[in-house]
């Protein structure tokens, strides 16, 4: 479960990015976070990744209050979160296999055989098992994002955070990626997708949280079921 309790985030220069935000996301839920530029979406992502610390309030992810978590515990925390970025952030000089395997190696503990099995399984989930030896530059944008998704889920995280995952993709590929993210919900993952593509979000009939000027202004499932 993710819970924002009266969370305010004020940057050093004085800008208030999130203003007393209260939001609860249950385990296994799929949520779109939407809003215009400057609404606080990116700040929310940064707080969830513990890249930034809340100014006041509490931010719970499972049994961890990120507001009070020590810096030394951040790497371990992030291994429980899968993250997907708009610009994919793949290692250009590594193959698809190596990119996905890298996340396993960082955590350590897996034998070479186990790494191979798990990476190939993940590539199969995202439909790229035949591209394992390709380099990112040899893939389309959608395929690169699927590699990023495979990397995000290989350590079996309980939560996946996707920050504008379809921002660099055409509509068809965007549908594909969103479809895969929704599929993650079926695997029991909590999925938080930050996007500004309202039409795309509506097509998946999932919970949509709307932010404006750092405040919660909407929380519903497209179709009118206000939560």
């Amino acid at each position: 479960m993710i819970e924002f309790k009266n969370v305010t985030k004020r940057y050093p220069e004085g800008k208030i990015a999130l203003d007393n935000l209260n939001l609860k996301i249950n385990d296994g839920e799929f949520v779109f976070i939407m809003g215009d530029s400057g609404a606080g979406k990116t700040t929310m992502t940064k707080l969830l990744l513990r890249e930034e610390r809340v100014t006041s309030g509490e931010l719970w992810v499972g049994d961890v209050n990120l507001a009070k978590m020590r810096a030394s515990r951040i790497p371990k925390y992030r291994r429980r979160i899968g993250v997907v970025f708009q610009d994919f952030r793949l290692f250009k000089q590594k193959t698809v296999f190596e990119n996905v395997a890298f996340a396993l190696r960082v955590v350590g503990g897996a034998s070479a055989a186990e790494v191979k099995t798990r990476v190939m399984t993940m590539l199969k989930v995202v439909g790229l098992e035949d591209k394992a030896n390709n380099f990112p530059a040899q893939l389309s944008g959608g395929e690169q994002q699927r590699v990023a998704l495979a990397r995000a889920i290989i350590n079996n995280p309980h939560t996946i955070i996707a920050d504008e995952p379809t921002g660099n993709l055409d509509p068809k590929l965007s549908m594909e990626i969103m479809g895969l993210l929704v599929q993650m919900k079926e695997y029991g993952k909590t999925v938080v997708v930050v996007t500004h593509e309202a039409e795309l979000a509506k097509m998946f009939h999932q919970r949509i949280v709307r932010l404006k000027d750092g405040r919660l202004v909407g929380d519903d499932i497209y179709g009118g079921d206000t939560l």
Partner: peptide, 16 residues
């Protein structure tokens, strides 16, 4: 620097 950013998000320790 980009690789380091990726490593941080994946959960690589400072030592790593």
């Amino acid at each position: 620097r980009d690789e380091i950013t990726i490593m941080r998000y994946i959960g690589a320790s400072r030592t790593y």
